[in-house]
Amino acid sequence: MTQASASSSTSPATINQVILRPPPTLVQRVGYFVRHHPIGVVGIVIIALVVITAVFAPQIAPYEPTSQTFKRLAPPSAINWLGTDDLGRDVFSRIVYGSRISLLVGLIAVTLALSVGVTLGVLSGYIGGKFDNGTMRVVDLMFAFPGLVLAIVIAGLLGPSITNAMIAIGIIYAPTFARVARGSVLTVQNELYLEAARLTGGGHVHIVSRHVLPNILAPLVVLVTLSMSTAILTEAALSFLGLGTQPPTPSWGKMLSEGRRFMEIAWWTTVFPGIAIVIAVLGFNLLGDGLRDALDPRLRE
């Protein structure tokens, strides 16, 4: 059908040109993204800065994040660029090291949500029937909880620690991944290429890994990016409430809650960790928005 309509409206020469044109190279694709989604590029730059800060924290931070060698609550100066906290620790060094915690928690929590959610979602969409029904009812129930409340309860019950914060965040995001993965599987389920793979005798594992997963990747990439920003926010919130990262590990949320007691005499202990959170979250939000526009227009708000 497509062939008939194409040959009637276009000359064979154009068809050949279209077919023979090589697929865009990676460089061309990147170039296209840069031109058409400048906001996404700003996001990439911000994320790159945060990642570099995290990786090279020992080289960037002027002091040890836990050494209590300075005057307490000293204002920003040439020695302590962003001042010191109530234990005489350098705020700038702690913020630099804090980027490691934020990225690590975000990364592990999102990976957990991704692996659990996508496995369940793909199986659900692919197998269908009772399994699908059962899984999706549980997913619906998880959605019925306000996310942060659930994270607070899980982290609180498991006991305050950074690992438990990751688990809690992973659990609350898994249903979203399951739902998106399942929906995407259902849309590719009836595609011709999937039928062709079945008819040529492709096994289930082959079909899912070679034909289903690559075709549902776009919405998942967008979801991973946007989830990173909310995971960083949630980690900060849990640590702020004392349910996440434990002292003396520098975490932005924890620094903020510790600084609150002295904020009237030492504003720098609360202002700067917050700015760090805003920058990291903004980076992932911008990239997520850009990717969404570029990869999957259906997901656009």
């Binding site: 920003s229 926010l233 900060a236 919130a237 702020f240 949320g253 903020l256 809650s257 609150r260 904020m263 009237e264 504003w267 609360t270 202002v271 960790p273 917050g274 959170i277 805003v278 920058i279 979250v281 903004l282 939000n285 911008l286």
Partner: peptide, 22 residues
């Protein structure tokens, strides 16, 4: 809109308190 989404509410709350008190 972009900034509003990136501000953690607990930080905003803290900043409000900081500003009103100072």
């Amino acid at each position: 809109g972009l900034l509003g989404l990136a501000f953690p509410n607990f930080w905003l709350a803290t900043m409000f308190l900081l500003i009103t008190s100072l």
